[in-house]
């Protein structure tokens, strides 16, 4: 129960900091801490598979997309100077402290003389897989369609139509 309160506090603090920073990279760091603390809460709620997915996909893949776009947008003259300011050590203290709280909590949770985390049964990934491939089969097919649509859409939107873009730039800036 105490662990839940600590994780919830870290999640709320880092979320508030994530939406209130003026610098996008700082906000991303706090957002990653927020996602990690929510993953720890999933672990406590008896959903280890969802916790692993949260770390791998949310804190891993989606945040990498954000970093990629921020770095593409901020490229240009003066970006080296800007990155040097971003890599200032003091900026890492806040996220590092919050992450340290989470990792200490994680070690306390999984240490060998383990108290039962909760009276709740742990829902293993096997049950989730059986549910996914059984009654939710249509949902899985629909999400594959959604991912394909996302892939095609991102490819189409990200394509540089250089000649067309030049003329469009002129007309827009008129």
């Amino acid at each position: 129960m105490t662990f839940f309160y600590i994780s919830a506090a870290v999640a709320l603090i880092s979320s508030v900091l994530a939406i209130s920073r003026s610098n996008a990279v700082h906000a991303l760091l706090y957002a990653i801490v927020s996602l990690l603390s929510v993953a720890l809460i999933f672990f406590m709620l008896g959903a280890p598979f969802a916790a692993a997915l949260e770390v791998v996909i949310y804190a891993g893949a989606i945040m990498v997309l954000f970093v990629f776009v921020i770095m593409m947008i901020s490229s240009g003259p003066g970006s080296t100077q800007q990155e040097r300011r971003w890599m200032n050590f003091r900026l890492w203290i806040g996220p590092s402290v919050l992450s340290a709280v989470l990792i200490i909590e994680l070690f306390a949770v999984i240490s060998p003389p383990r108290e039962p985390m909760s009276a709740k049964p742990v829902i293993e990934s096997k049950q989730v897989g059986i549910a996914l491939m059984g009654p939710y089969m249509l949902g899985v097919e629909l999400s594959s369609l959604l991912l394909t649509a996302g892939l095609v859409g991102a490819y189409h939107l990200g394509k540089r139509k250089d000649d067309a873009a030049q003329t469009e730039d002129v007309t827009i800036h008129d």
Partner: peptide
């Protein structure tokens, strides 16, 4: 297990949404 199944669907939706949004 239904809660985790819906979480996976939300995850898929978020991934598709963020890729198109960032594009």
């Amino acid at each position: 297990a239904d809660g985790q199944v819906m979480f996976i669907f939300i995850l898929v939706m978020a991934a598709a949404e963020v890729s198109v949004g960032l594009a």
